[in-house]
Every structure is written in C-alpha cells, then in structure tokens.
Amino acid sequence: MTEAKISCRNLWKLYGAGADEFLKQHSGKPSTEALRAGNYVSAVRDVSLDIMPGQILVVMGLSGSGKSTLLRCLARLVEPTAGEVIFEGQNLLKATEAEMIELRRHKMGMVFQNFALLPHRTVLENVAFPLQVQGMNRRQREDRAREVVELVGLKGRESYYPRQLSGGQQQRVGIARSLAVGPDVWFLDEPFSALDPLIRREMQDEFLRLQQMLSKTIVFITHDFGEAIRVADRIAIMKDGLVEQLGTAEELVTCPATPYVAEFTREISRDQFLSVSSAMTPAKGRRPLDGAIKLQARLVDVARQVLSSDDPVDVVDDNGLLVGALSRPAVINALYGKELCP
C-alpha cells in the first residue's frame, strides 16, 4: 500500500494564552463551549488527513475558515499547538528550526497570492534566488533557472524585470522560482486569485500542464469551487477550523456530509464534473451491446445518447468490459435531482 507523502494527525492551532496546556486539560478534545469560555480561537481544529504522492488536495472555505493556517501548519510556517505533521516518516513538529529550513530549501515549494518577486532582479535571477540561498554556484543555478523558465513558458524573457511583465507572467516567475529547487511537496495559497479571469484560466491550464509533467504532491488553497473542480483530486471544505468533509467534487456535491457542505456546494452545476460512474447501475456477466459508453465519461457528454434511447445504455471500462448500464431516469436524477448518496 502506498504511504502518504504528507499527513497530519489531530492537528490543532489555537490562539490564546496557555493554549497547549488548555488542550492537555481537555485531553485534546475541547468542546466548542470550552473553547468559547476560554476565549480561544481555533484556527485549525483537530484536523487529520493524508495527501498521497502526486495528489492535488484543494482546501476550501470562507475567509477565516482556517484553510491558509492549515497550509502554513503543514509547512510549519505557523507553529501548531498540538498534533502531528508527518512528512516522509518524520514528525515535523519535532524537527529543529535548522532542519525545517533545510526541508523548505530542498523539498518544499511555496507559491502565494502575493508574487513577492524581487523588483531589482531579472526573471532569471528571481528564479535562481532559492538556489543561491542553497549555496549552488552561479553557473549551475542559472542553468537550472533557464530550464524552469522554459518549463513555465517564459523563454526569451530571462532578462526582463518584474515591472516589465504582466500579472500572469509574474505569477509564472513565482511558480518557476518555487519549482527551481525540485520540491517534493508544493504548497500554493490562492496563487491565481489576484489575476483577471482570463489570465486565471490560462494559469490553471498551465498549472495542470505542469502537474501532468511533474506529478507533484500539492496542497492548493482556493475559495473558487470552479477552480477546485478543475485542479483537485480531492477537496477539503473547512469551517471554523474544522474539516467538514473531505472527498472528490462528486462526493461533496452529490452526497454532502453536513448542512454546511450542502449549502457551500448548492449552486454548483453538476454537469461540470459528474461522471457516468456516479449514476450507472452495476452490471456484468455478458458482452456489452453496441454503442456502449465509457465509465469515466462525463454525464453531460453522453446525456443526449442516453436520453434518446428507450433502453439503458451499457457502460464499459478502459478494457471494454461491461461494468454497468445507464438509464434515462438515472441521468435526469443525477443532473437535476437531489443527493445521490448510496
């Protein structure tokens, strides 16, 4: 079984005097009433989750939900009050500051909403900067920086200064800089939210292209569910420091675990992401009929075929084997009905 690249167990970040002692007094499980009575703010509250190698975990929530604090706790940019953060078998909460600096320099990449480019340095110098901090010689770091600049589509602009670039190009420089060190884990905190909608879409496309090539393990913060649907393998929705639900976009929208998740996802159009697998009836033991559809096809792409057929349409896997059938009522219910919970 594949081990998680990064995990957290019972992770807490409380703001208030004596927060660690308060948690111990309540055996690590204080109630909402106890937190309120003690005047504590729970930015991250008893969060446990696993992020598998090559997976994109998107964390969502309204302002103040704790999503950015969770990301910073995972990288220990913010010191957690209690719990564990396991990275490659090591509990980061027990690592020294010197060890954390080395991990961030060599194994963690970070991109934030504020591009934070150095205005007096060129694109190439900005991208090479973390390698300079590592102590890499000038020729090696510039060679590496040129590779990454080309990777993000900025070849030919190595000598430009940030002021000479568009917002989208500046963000590409920030992404290139974070990739220069070859990170194992990539932390992105609303990296595209300051961009215009068209540029933002282009950057999402660029991000997905890079991920297909590099297969990084990523924690991605956003408040935009449409963006989450495009990039996420799994989505965590947070409220008041708690993870209300963790799952795929389909699971969150079609089977919300709490009223908050249901309200959070209420306006999401299902045809953006629902697949045939979410609505079919299982079947096997015979050859599929002509006109069978693929298991992972989007419902919206096969709806016309199914709705115009009097009989259910067979569903096959990637090997062409029968796995189910999709009926007209099932398509209608999936796209326009209520919940699809089993």
Rank of each mutant, 00 (worst) to 15 (best):
A176V: 10
A176D: 11
R177A: 11
S178F: 09
L179G: 03
P183D: 07
W186H: 14
D189H: 09
D189R: 05
D189P: 12
D189N: 00
E190P: 08
E190A: 02
E190K: 12
P191F: 11
F192W: 08
F192A: 09
A194F: 06
D196N: 03
P197N: 10
R201A: 13
R201M: 15
E202I: 05
E202S: 08
E206P: 02
E206R: 06
E206N: 04
F207L: 15
L208E: 10
L208R: 10
R209Q: 09
L210A: 07
Q212F: 05
K216L: 14
T217W: 07
V219I: 12
F220E: 02
T222G: 02
T222E: 04
D224M: 13
D224K: 06
G226H: 14
G226W: 12
E227G: 10
A228R: 05
I229K: 09
R230H: 13
V231M: 14
A232D: 06
A232P: 03
D233K: 08
D233T: 15
R234C: 03
I235A: 11
I235G: 11
I235Y: 14
A236F: 09
A236M: 09
I237W: 13
I237K: 14
M238A: 07
K239S: 11
K239A: 00
D240G: 06
D240L: 12
G241M: 09
V243F: 13
V243K: 13
L246I: 04
L246S: 00
L246Y: 10
G247P: 10
T248H: 01
A249W: 00
A249E: 01
A249K: 00
E250A: 12
E250F: 04
E251A: 15
E251N: 04
L252F: 12
V253A: 10
V253H: 13
V253Q: 05
V253S: 07
T254H: 07
T254E: 07
C255L: 08
C255F: 09
P256Q: 02
P256C: 05
Y260G: 03
V261W: 02
A262E: 13
F264S: 05
T265R: 04
T265G: 03
T265I: 11
I268E: 13
I268N: 01
S269K: 15
R270E: 02
D271S: 05
D271I: 01
Q272V: 03
Q272T: 04
F273S: 00
V276E: 04
T281N: 13
T281I: 14
A283Y: 01
A283M: 12
A283D: 10
R287I: 14
P288Y: 02
P288V: 03
L289G: 14
L289H: 15
L289W: 04
D290T: 07
G291W: 14
L295E: 07
L295S: 06
